[in-house]
Structures are given as C-alpha cells and as structure tokens.
C-alpha cells in the first residue's frame, strides 16, 4: 500500500488555503461562497462518475474547475497558482 504520511500535510495545506481565501475575501462573501460551490459541484461529479463505473463523464472537468476558479480569483494570482497545486490534472 502507498505510504500515508503525506495525508496530514495535504490536510493542513487545505486548511491553510481555505483560511487564506476566507481572509482575502472577507468583504466579498459571495466570492468565497461561489468557490465552495465549485468545489462541491466538482466533488459531486466525481462521485457520480465513480458510482457509474466509467459510464458517466463528469460535467465539470479539472480544466473547467480551474477556469471557473480563475474567473473568480481574477487578480489574485497567488491564490490561483496555489489552487493549481490541489488539482489532480492541472
């Protein structure tokens, strides 16, 4: 089995990143909310695809997730490039 040691690192990275976004968009809760929505849609699509066992193409690809987040985080290059570190196929 693959080593699990990286898991806490990924988890901490995710916590720090979510915090950074929350702080950055403190005065613009709609942007933060839209970001959460993109993530949840992506997760739902991934789950659907998994359950369909290859018979379902996710409506939201990694590329589209990235594009949507880029539109949302315009002028926030650091947040966007950090987001790219999370995406499986960025």
């Amino acid at each position: 089995p693959p080593p699990q040691n990286n898991q806490p690192v990924e988890f901490n990275h995710a916590i720090n990143y979510v915090n950074k976004i929350k702080n950055r968009f403190q005065g613009q809760p709609d942007i933060y909310k839209a970001f959460l929505e993109i993530l949840h849609t992506y997760q739902k699509e991934q789950r659907n695809a998994k359950e369909a066992g290859g018979n379902y193409t996710p409506a939201l690809t990694e590329q589209e997730v990235y594009t949507q987040v880029a539109r949302l985080f315009k002028n926030q290059e650091d947040l966007l490039s950090e987001f790219g570190q999370f995406l499986p196929d960025a």
Partner: peptide, 27 residues
C-alpha cells in the same frame, strides 16, 4: 484561530482529497 463552519470543513475535505488524488496520479 480557525473559525470553521461545516461548509468550510467540507471545502477542506474536497481540497485535501483532490491533493491526494493528484499525488496518487503523479506517482
């Protein structure tokens, strides 16, 4: 200090599972 709502926590969950998936697909 972390003031996380359940929504925040689920975002953290999605992001970390994305990162995990990325790691396994890269290795």
């Amino acid at each position: 200090s972390y003031d996380f709502t359940p929504l925040d926590s689920s975002a953290v969950y999605v992001l970390s599972s994305m990162a995990r998936q990325r790691r396994t697909s890269l290795s």
